[in-house]
Design a protein around this nucleic acid. Sequence first.
DNA 1: TTTATATATCTAGAATATTAGATATGTTTT
DNA 2: AAAACATATCTAATATTCTAGATATATAAA
Lengths: 100, 100
Amino acid sequence: MNIVEISKILANQTRVDILKWLKNPEDNFPPHQDIDHFDDGVCVGFIQDKTGLSQSTISTYLNSMQNAKLVIPTRHGKWTYYRRNEEVIKAYTQSLSEEL
Amino acid sequence: MNIVEISKILANQTRVDILKWLKNPEDNFPPHQDIDHFDDGVCVGFIQDKTGLSQSTISTYLNSMQNAKLVIPTRHGKWTYYRRNEEVIKAYTQSLSEEL
DNA sequence: TTTATATATCTAGAATATTAGATATGTTTT
DNA sequence: AAAACATATCTAATATTCTAGATATATAAA
C-alpha cells in the first residue's frame, strides 16, 4: 500500500466526495434506466451531474482512481459503471493506521 | 478531521518519511548535543541532513505539517525540535477508516 | 556587542495538478 | 449504414506545489 500514491488521490475534495457517494449510491443518485440496482456502481454521467464538473474532468478523475485501484469499472452497453473497491480501501486505511 | 487537508500533506514522500522517522528518533537520528533524549522530537537540521533537501524546503514542510497539527514544535535555545502529534495522527487514521 | 549558528520567511522559477474544449472510440438506435 | 449517445483521450490554459537562494530573526558564543 503506497501512502503517497493514495494520498494524492484523496488530496482533492471532489474525488473524496465521489468515494463517499459511492458508499450509498441509492441515497446519492437517481435510479439507472436500464437496471434497478447499483451492484456495479454508478454511471459516469450521474457522477458528473452531481459534481458539476466537465465530462472530461470526471472521466480523468475516475481513471486516476481506477489506476490506484480505489474503484472498479464495469461496462454495461454504452455506460461505464464505477463502484468502490472495498478490499483496497479497507487495506489502505488499515495499513495507514499501522504504518503512519 | 479534514481528509483533503491531511492527504495533501501525506501526498509527498519526504513528509511521510519525516513522520515515520519521528516514530523512532533514536533509530533514525544521531543524539543531540545539548540533551540526551528525543522527548521533544528532533531538530530541523538533523531532519534536513537526512532528507538531503534545502533548509528552507524542510522548514516549509515542517511548518505545513505543524499547521495541519501533525507535528508539535518546541524551542530549546537556538534549536527547534519537532515531534509527532500522536493524538491527531491517531484521530486521523481512525476517522479515515470510518468516513472513507 | 560583534559574530556565529539555527531556523523562519520571502521571492521566484520549475514541475505537477486541475480543468475544460475538441476529438476519438465504442455502443445503441434508427 | 448513418445518427445519436456515453465515455475516453488529447491538447492546452490556469492554478498549485515544489524547491532553493536570499534575507530576516532569534539565540548563543566570543
